[in-house]
Simulated scan of single mutants.
Amino acid sequence: MLRRGFLSVRSGLTDDDVRKSAAGLAVRALELPELAHARSVAAYVSVGSEPGTLALLDALHARGVRVLLPVLLPDNDLDWGAYEGAGSLAPVRHGTRMALLEPVGERLGPDAVRGADVVLLPGLAVDGRGMRLGRGGGSYDRVLARLERTDADPALVVLLYDAEVVERVPAQAHDRPVHAVVTPSGVRRFR
């Protein structure tokens, strides 16, 4: 029910709202010291009314950062491919879901995320503890568990709209807190 509420608010955003927020998100995210020093960043391509990521991906790529983007596997786990600019993406439909933009090049395997200095995570909300509410598919829960099992310690950052930073979201034993949330108006750290 909570997820539906956040998705409903997002569906009311105009293309102009999403575009303006994406510009603000890129500016704020690029100010993060973690991204300023990153050699490799695992990110994602926003779809629909999600907080926009393409401007940020392009800026990181222009800096010479290796940007890894997810490829959704049939079991909802994520493989990874390198972002080489907007021309390196293709729409891929997974069943009846909305088409996702995925990298067209070589597949690097699910463990490629372990080499990232920063992991930019999608979400619907984050709370004051840094707990992230995802869409419920479990893809990024698997990514976070993989990172934890291998002692990889990248900075975990969620990109959201301002109103999606809330007091509390439900958390389960397997959920892991993030280190920061970036919104169009600023950054909040949790660690």
Score class of each variant (00 low, 15 high):
D117E: 14
A59C: 05
R97L: 15
P70C: 02
R3S: 10
L156F: 00
G138E: 07
E167K: 13
V47G: 08
N76I: 08
Y44Q: 07
R19C: 04
D175P: 11
A43M: 04
E167I: 08
D117G: 12
R189M: 02
V165K: 05
Q172D: 13
G12N: 06
P74V: 04
E148N: 08
M1R: 15
L73K: 10
V92N: 03
L35K: 03
G64H: 07
R3Q: 10
P33I: 03
A145D: 07
L32Y: 04
R191Y: 00
V143G: 08
K20M: 11
A116L: 10
V166D: 10
V143A: 04
E167M: 08
L120Y: 03
V181Y: 00
W80K: 08
E50S: 07
L156Q: 05
G12L: 05
D151T: 08
A59L: 02
T53C: 02
P74W: 05
L69V: 04
R10P: 11
R97I: 03
S88F: 00
G5C: 09
A43E: 06
L78I: 15
L13M: 08
L25N: 13
A112N: 09
D175Y: 12
G134L: 10
V27F: 09
E106S: 06
E167H: 14
R19G: 06
G123K: 03
A38R: 03
A180I: 00
L60W: 10
D15S: 13
V65K: 09
Y161P: 12
D77H: 13
E102G: 01
A145L: 04
V157C: 05
R189A: 02
G134R: 09
V187R: 03
L60T: 07
R146E: 05
E148K: 10
V18P: 14
A23N: 10
L7P: 08
Y161D: 10
V187C: 05
V118E: 02
K20A: 14
G85I: 14
R39W: 02
R189F: 01
P177R: 00
A36K: 15
P110Q: 12
V92T: 09
F190V: 00
G24E: 13
V9K: 15
Y83E: 13
F6Y: 15
G186I: 09
V187F: 02
G85W: 09
G81D: 07
Q172W: 12
R39S: 09
T96C: 12
